[in-house]
């Protein structure tokens, strides 16, 4: 764990030192800020409810997270640093986990920035923002981000090209996000249909958005995160014997 944290610290420092993260954060805040302004300025006074906005922010993050994660392992492979790292006294899991942890910290920074909107909304509403549902929605957003970043790390471990890793990540995330649609198809009622629909990200995420924290959804997101990181570790491992 200590080794993973050392890797994460190094990555976090490089994120902060490169303009890429700040451009992403600025773009995200510009877009989400505009959406927030649109929401507040509806013709009929809206409710002090961050849930609709957080669901849209979640959709934006589907595209941002692969961009955050795409360089993590792909860049190391391209620059030939991976071989050096593999000779260091750390194992593949520590390397993968450390990289993911760094991206997750940066993602959390992005999410914390949106608390600025919650603060404004809280001031504009006489009764303030309901704390329970807002907390649940943020828990959902953090878990979603953790899983999406893990998928990003996995695709980043598959290729030396950042662009390919990012594109692949977005594709995988899109497929996973819309898998829930399967249950609306003719075979969706079957056992296989239900199992495939269960793999869909959106249903699990939207439940948090309603203000409900359910252990099923937590287990799903943690499984997806761990499963992706585990596969990424195995992908790195193949370099030792390929």
């Amino acid at each position: 764990m200590r080794n993973a944290w050392v890797i994460a610290q190094r990555e976090i420092a490089s994120y902060f030192a490169a303009p890429m993260f700040w451009i992403l954060a600025g773009g995200f805040m510009a877009f989400s800020g505009f959406l927030f302004w649109l929401y507040i300025n509806q013709p009929t006074p809206p409710q002090a409810d961050m849930l609709p906005l957080l669901q849209v922010y979640g959709t934006i993050l589907l595209f941002i997270t692969p961009l955050l994660a795409m360089r993590l392992l792909a860049e190391e492979q391209r620059a030939g640093r991976l071989e050096v790292l593999m000779t260091a006294p750390i194992n593949d899991w520590q390397l993968v986990f450390g990289k993911w942890l760094a991206a997750f910290v940066m993602f959390t920074v992005l999410i914390v920035l949106t608390l600025f909107h919650v603060g404004i909304m809280h001031r504009l509403a006489e009764k303030g923002v309901a704390p329970g549902p807002t907390f649940a929605a943020y828990v959902g957003l953090i878990l979603l981000g953790a899983a999406l970043l893990a998928i990003g790390v996995l695709t980043s471990s598959m290729t030396e090209s950042q662009v390919v890793a990012g594109f692949l990540g977005i594709m995988v995330i899109m497929v996973l996000f819309f898998l829930s649609i399967v249950k609306q198809m003719p075979f969706g009622e079957s056992g296989l249909g239900a199992a495939v629909a269960y793999l869909g990200l959106s249903d699990h995420y939207y439940k948090f958005g309603q203000g409900v924290v359910d252990t099923r959804d937590i287990v799903y997101f943690l499984s997806l995160t761990f499963g992706s990181l585990f596969l990424a570790t195995r992908m790195l491992e193949t370099r030792r014997w390929r």
């Binding site: 309901a130 329970g132 549902p133 309603q210 409900v212 359910d214 252990t215």
Partner: peptide, 8 residues
């Protein structure tokens, strides 16, 4: 499973 309804 267990679910926590955090709505007001």
């Amino acid at each position: 499973y267990r679910a926590w309804d955090l709505t007001t």
